[in-house]
Design a protein around this nucleic acid. Structure first.
Lengths: 187, 187
DNA sequence: AGGCTTACCTAGAGGTCCTAGGCAAATTAT
DNA sequence: ATAATTTGCCTAGGACCTCTAGGTAAGCCT
């Protein structure tokens, strides 16, 4: 019988696509096996268990997002860079909802190290335009990350739908607010 | 045979405690039935299905948080109120991690209406000290909510642990930043 | 061609979700 | 107080998911 040619990477990629289609919580080993036309048990040669699959998916998403953000902020500085950063982040969450959800699982520091480093570097690149230094730089990076993640995840969960005010307008205002608070930070 | 005296409310309460102990994602109908010493099937007289249980848990958590926040901000105004609001929010996420996680599931507007209204009222109460009016009031409320939720959920997922800078210091700085941006908002 | 590695298989145990149908306990009506 | 009704909890069982053990055969290397 012909082999399907599975590898951990192909499984992770397919799992990511599946997550975007049916939701991260519905990514199961069984569903993934069905997608490749093989039996569940066959996947366990490539992944340790279901949690391992989820972690690989999260790492994939973190790396992808880092790439897209890096591309967005390249050649920009100051508020331009901030807006590019934020927009790339939000766009990823929109276009890849399953991958974005995967990113939210808690990863042990070792597993997340590579991605965490890249994300930290990019955040610092954006903040370079605001002339901040440690330890305030870290405080500002955490605030930036918090605001973006908070806004995007509340938007996705529908928390903003209860009010007619357009979400887009609030988003632009939030970016304005972030920009002005970063410029005034040295206080 | 003596009955266990189950009701939807008792199940939801127990599910909330279970969530705080073992994590929201590990709250199962089976585990809950075990806790009461009954069979799984018995719970389906009180809850429609597993998702219904999760929704009830989310609504319970939203109401509890609203109560605690209301108590915290009572009699305070301006930055005092802001800090009280934020601290109550963060404390709840810390002390009731399972309930906090439950709150994040997407609820249909009807189900969330009561809690959403109360939360909206309180947010507006805090912002009253900053003299904001619609539509900026909504923008500011969304930013406030985003920042708090973002910070708290990133803190919980361990995203801040990769850096030695104390999280507490960053938290205080974030509150300062929020306060100053709200004061300067009318721009 | 023979040997080795490994991709995928079957079989099966154990867990969760949920429905259908039944009995007995609690409640209400007489 | 007994009868009628409601309902809380039961058993049985199907569908799906996770994961292990052990086997067969496909593809690579010599």
């Amino acid at each position: 019988m012909a082999r399907a040619g599975l590898t951990a990477d192909r499984l992770t990629q397919a799992a990511a696509d599946l997550a975007d289609e049916v939701g991260f919580e519905n990514v199961t080993v069984s569903a993934l096996a069905r997608h490749f036309g093989v039996k569940d048990a066959s996947l366990y040669s490539h992944i340790r268990n279901a949690q391992d699959l989820r972690v690989r998916l999260a790492v994939l998403a973190l790396a992808e997002l880092a790439d897209q953000v890096a591309e967005s902020i390249a050649g920009r500085a100051g508020k331009d860079a901030l807006v590019a950063f934020a927009s790339a982040y939000r766009r990823y969450a929109r276009e890849r909802p399953g991958r974005y959800a995967a990113m939210q699982i808690a990863l042990d520091p070792d597993t997340a190290a590579d991605s965490a480093l890249k994300h930290a570097e990019m955040t610092r690149a954006v903040l370079r335009g605001y002339e901040l230094w440690e330890p305030e730089l870290t405080d500002a990076a955490r605030l930036l990350h918090s605001t973006l993640h908070g806004f995007v995840s509340l938007e996705r969960s529908g928390a903003f739908h209860s009010h007619p005010r357009g979400v887009e307008a609030s988003w632009l205002r939030a970016l304005d607010a972030l920009d002005s608070v970063l410029r005034a930070w040295p206080a």
